[in-house]
């Protein structure tokens, strides 16, 4: 008897405290975040855990596999495709980050000056960024489709012989990177322009009073002021480039001979091409680990600021 009474009164106090929690508004942040948290659990946390498990099995898309220990990871590390994908992911990220940073900074500096029609230029230079990936690839492909396409006509003007951009391994890599730079520089430009506009003008006035040349002002005032945001932007762009599927897939499907296959494309090919969920999951898990390392750097940077 007494036990029943006890539990009933406990339930009563629990309900009362829940009601108080609700009434004081302390519950509100939790309730506001609840839908997002549930979605993230379903779409990020659940796949992350199951994907981690799949990496140790030999299943296919149609049936669950058996536990095979580290077999997938061993196969991955010893495979040439994986090492190549790792290498290409690195090359892709480094060249894209350097390229789109340089281009973005140059244009941001231009746009930060007094120019007629500046709002128009700012918008017009963002177009490559907002165009759907498929549209940008279609438009670029046309310019290098065959021996009489625009790029080859230009090469012909200078007396060169036609280049088969998408069937030559080196040129395919160059074009994937070039298109990725074209698609990424507007973000860099926009962010750096915002940063440039927030630099205190009196720093420049002081510098020019001291007789600093324009170049020295750029070197000793502008660049130090941009240093932190540049590091953050470079890390963000690296993460996005490692994660990029659209550019290499739509342009070359990873070819010719896997020359433009990054880790994401490799994981996709293992899973949906070879129907090997274990190997595909292992590959994407390696990608996650690499990105995690970058994020740790990123968060540390942001805390410092």
């Amino acid at each position: 008897m007494s036990a029943v009474d006890l539990s009933r009164s406990e339930a009563g106090t629990w309900r009362a405290s829940a009601r108080a929690w609700w009434r004081t508004g302390d519950a509100l942040p939790f309730l506001l975040l609840a839908p997002s948290v549930l979605l993230i659990l379903a779409v990020i946390a659940y796949p992350m855990l199951t994907g981690f498990w799949y990496g140790f099995t030999d299943g296919s898309l149609l049936k669950y596999g058996r536990f095979v220990g580290l077999d997938n990871y061993v196969e991955l590390i010893t495979s040439r495709d994986f090492r190549h994908a790792l290498w290409f992911s690195l090359v892709f990220a480094v060249f894209n980050v350097v390229g789109c940073y340089a281009l973005g900074l140059g244009l941001a500096l231009l746009l930060n000056q007094d120019v007629p029609g500046r709002p128009f230029f700012r918008v017009a230079l963002l177009l490559p960024w907002i165009v759907p990936s498929i549209v940008s690839i279609v438009s670029w492909r046309w310019m290098m489709a065959d021996e009489r396409a625009l790029f080859n006509q230009v090469i012909g003007l200078f007396g060169g012989s036609p280049v088969y951009f998408l069937s030559d391994q080196t040129w395919a890599v160059v074009m994937v990177i070039a298109i990725k730079i074209w698609r990424s520089f507007p973000f860099m430009m926009l962010s750096l322009l915002a940063a440039l506009q927030s630099i205190d003008r009196s720093l420049y006035e002081a510098a020019s009073l001291d007789g600093a040349s324009r170049w020295n002002q750029f070197r000793f005032v502008t660049m130090p002021q941009l240093r932190n945001i540049s590091i953050v932007l470079a890390l963000l762009m690296t993460i996005w480039t490692v994660n990029d599927f659209d550019t290499p897939w739509l342009l070359t499907q990873g070819g010719p001979a896997n020359a433009t296959e990054n880790l994401v494309l490799l994981a996709y090919r293992y899973t949906f091409g070879r129907n090997d969920v274990g190997l595909g999951s292992a590959t994407s898990f390696v990608t996650l680990i690499i990105l995690m390392i970058l994020v740790v750097f990123l968060l540390r940077r942001q805390k410092e600021r």
């Binding site: 990020i44 659940y46 796949p47 994907g51 799949y54 969920v277």
Partner: peptide
């Protein structure tokens, strides 16, 4: 903080289990 992880998350890793 979690939002940061979501933003960098390699979507391919989510696609495999979610496809199944």
């Amino acid at each position: 903080r979690t939002l940061f992880i979501v933003q960098m998350f390699p979507i391919i890793l989510a696609l495999i289990p979610l496809f199944i």
